[in-house]
Nucleic acid binder design. Structure first.
Lengths: 354, 354
DNA sequence: TTGAAAGCGCTAACAT
DNA sequence: ATGTTAGCGCTTTCAA
């Protein structure tokens, strides 16, 4: 009736060898004769052995150190959320002997990124979670990690050439398309749509452009109304920033704003509110405290949730699965492009995943 | 540096008693002298003991049987998805000695619900996951479960009086509000909106009415355009069903349809397509195969995802946490009200959670 | 009422 | 190359 799970001991008995030998075969640790190997594999093919991961973890009794490399949470609420995910993972795994160490770099300083990564390399962790926001600086870093055979997981920004253990994040091109769809919905008068990249350092932001491409592609393909799509790179620290923005808002044909960054979304909302242009549609990113306020007030119409917190905590989980449970992890874990509105936002905040 | 986790053995040493005694205190199994109790609790207050759940589970070496009660998956694709969640949970937990048994009842037959629940009661499982779709019949069943002290978890339909271990599902009233919001978005001409309850047995569907209430409430509060909101209970098996529907679609002032069930969404979409009224907005429920086709084709505009699969698998997880890991579970686990569109649907399907 | 000890399934060190 | 064995932290039985 209740078929007991097969244990290593059972395999050993069936194959006529000892548990030690079975274990060596299972993890190909070598030092096993061809005959023994053959006998064990023969048995393994017959039965469906599923190791008890609890016992495996308990038995191996190892401690792992995982390094998490990300921008300073104090510089940006987006990264503050990612940091929360790390903290959560820290707590979750601490009791199983997993130690998560945080390595922060300056969001605006590529040099600091490099230095931090080097520090991590010297610390020789067993696994690495990294947000590789600087493309060019990241490539040689990956080389370094590979030299020491340290598994690393990318999150937030994908760099396929990295050959990382896995990537966790979203499809940015599609994200732009979702933004466009939300922008387009129910628009019936032609006019201007603006894509705003509001960031203090736009230089290397290929990922923002990826969103813009998706956004434009959607309108090329789908929209029945002829929109004029313009884009701006804006630096909120720039003294002329608000004037620039005001000029944009003065255009009576302006129908909507698509802001590609989470922090930028709040900035844009504040100005839109200030100049009373709440009739235009505002689509932006992420459940930052400030964004929530504007969403509830009706200034922001839609937020696309990138879920940095879950990205980070799942990144750690993937590393744990790999290191501790010796479980396979998916090469890419693409998160759903969650659409947040005034009416469903509370259900997201309350759902515990966030 | 790396502070080791505190173990029972450590507590025992600090309190000057044996591990057996500590264990008895921890799980108040009794048979411990006031002095011993006092010594142990004193230590416990000083330190932050977090039991190693892996070891706990491995050590206790128990097998648990969990019964899952839900409507026959063959009758409705929605329940087929819930069933997938059960299957997934079965596989996930099998290796840890958790056995999940399926008990199906006829979706349209309250008697069958009762009989099935009684069978479960006689089988004396260690835990129960149940979709209590029939309110009145469910109440005495809960009484039965409570008699044998069997923990049970509700999913899909909430019955607060049940005093269940927990409920997993969505806030239906808010779900209706989300539906209304999506319906309202960008509508600029006044007209008629129809709420459709398409079901073979509407009698007991308080939960559908809850959605309708939310829907109406939203429009009362928010909408600037004056809409006429009408509602219909329709049975697709009824010979006059299509005619009724056609009459509805012939109304040129019809602006949108809000369908409260997942299966009904596909039915409605097929008729809307057939009579070429794709200009009206269609908001429905769930990522059923058929619904996906209509969403991709642009007939359905929005789907609200109830995620039956994850509801079911999480329900099992909660029971496992309770029985095996002795972990607390949240009294209610309200899922986010996910908004699915043509542009983000693939990201949901690919994300592995679904 | 208490403590000692065996055992859960697996790992890894240690003889052989 | 192979088998034996002592743990991992916790539960649970059993003798005292």
């Amino acid at each position: 009736m209740v078929e007991k799970n097969i244990r290593i001991k059972d395999i050993a008995r069936l194959a006529g060898v000892s548990v030690g030998t079975v274990d060596r075969v299972l993890h190909n640790r070598g030092r096993v004769s061809p005959e023994a190997l053959q006998k064990v594999t023969a048995v393994m093919e017959q039965i469906d052995y599923k190791p008890n991961l609890l016992a495996r973890t308990l038995g191996s009794n190892k401690n792992y150190r995982i390094a998490a490399i990300l921008p300073d949470p104090n510089q940006d609420p987006y990264w503050a959320q990612a940091n929360l995910g790390i903290t959560q993972a820290q707590l979750e795994w601490a009791q199983y002997g997993i130690q998560v160490e945080l390595f922060l770099f300056d969001l605006l300083d590529r040099d600091s990124f490099q230095k931090t990564a080097h520090r991590v390399h010297l610390a020789r962790p067993d696994g690495i979670l990294i947000a590789p926001t600087f493309y060019h600086e990241a490539l040689p870093i990956f080389e370094l990690f590979r030299e020491t055979d340290t598994p690393f997981v990318l999150f937030n920004t994908n760099i396929p050439e990295a050959k990382s253990l896995s990537f966790i994040g979203q499809n940015l091109h599609q994200s732009g398309r979702v933004g466009a769809e939300l922008m387009n919905l129910g628009q019936h008068e032609k006019g201007t749509l603006a894509v705003l990249h509001i960031d203090e350092d736009i230089q290397d932001s290929v990922h923002l452009l990826e969103k813009e491409r998706g956004f434009r592609e959607y309108f090329k393909e789908k929209s029945k109304v002829a929109f004029d799509i313009v884009d701006f790179n804006m630096n909120p620290k720039d003294p002329s920033f608000e004037d620039q923005f005001k000029t944009l808002l003065d255009d009576k044909s302006l129908r909507g704003l698509f802001v590609s960054t989470s922090k930028g979304t709040a900035v844009a909302a504040s100005i839109v509110e200030k100049y009373g242009r709440q009739d235009i549609r505002l689509v932006g990113y992420d459940l930052l405290e400030e964004n929530l306020r504007y969403l509830r007030a009706g200034v922001i119409d839609f937020l696309i949730n990138q879920n940095p917190k879950r990205q980070a905590s799942l990144g750690i989980s993937h590393l744990v699965n790999h290191l501790m449970f010796k479980k396979g992890t998916p090469a890419t874990d693409l998160f759903p492009l969650e659409v947040i509105t005034q009416q469903n936002v509370e259900s997201y905040l309350g759902s515990g995943i966030h």
